[in-house]
């Protein structure tokens, strides 16, 4: 279990990251600190693109990110994140912070070779499995179940329908 945990997102300086579900922006800011640390030269910085479907929350996240000083490393987009963000694809890492009925096809397509996608998959309002998908260099897919999690449901085109 511990060794699996250690392997979860494997973020490196310079990574381009897509987050589906910005929430209040905390994940994105913490990830920015890993892929674009203040002490690293700007030319080596990666970038976080985080998509939020709820407009009020996207505005709250933008305000928080700016205030925390990560406005130059994080971009908040208000749209349907279940479609990913093709404008800046492909991504080294994609994380989904909401429970999906299954892995949205556009997200998989927007992942670079050797990229990692982390997504809770399962029923809404109950528990889900945290699935880690690795797109291997030979094009094959490796799928691992990292255990039970509980997230708010993913909405939008590839999300849960209510």
């Amino acid at each position: 279990m511990v060794s699996i945990m250690n392997e979860a997102l494997q973020l490196e300086v310079g990574h381009k990251v897509l987050e589906v579900g910005a929430g209040s922006g905390w994940h994105a800011a913490t990830i920015a600190e890993l892929i674009a640390p203040s002490e690293a030269p700007r030319s080596e910085w990666g970038h976080v693109y985080t998509v939020e479907i709820i407009q009020g929350l996207a505005e709250f996240a933008r305000k928080n990110i700016m205030k925390a000083g990560y406005g130059d490393r994080v971009t908040i987009i208000c749209s349907d994140g279940s479609l990913g963000y093709p404008e800046k694809a492909p991504y080294d890492r994609i994380l989904v912070t909401a429970a999906a009925p299954e892995v949205p096809k556009p997200l998989f397509e927007q992942l670079k070779p050797c990229g990692i996608l982390l997504i809770p998959v399962g029923s809404p309002h109950l528990f889900q499995s945290l699935i880690k998908i690795t797109k291997q260099a030979n094009g094959k897919i490796r799928e691992e179940n990292l255990g039970g999690v509980a997230f708010v449901p993913l909405t939008g085109q590839y999300g849960h329908k209510f």
Binding site: M5, A8, W26, L34, G56, F60, L95, V152
Partner: peptide, 19 residues
């Protein structure tokens, strides 16, 4: 809760994702 019916993760949960 962070409003709009959404939540912010528990710190151990983000720690788990980041490794």
């Amino acid at each position: 809760p962070v409003g709009f019916g959404q939540t912010i993760s528990a710190p151990h949960s983000l720690a788990f994702w980041l490794g």
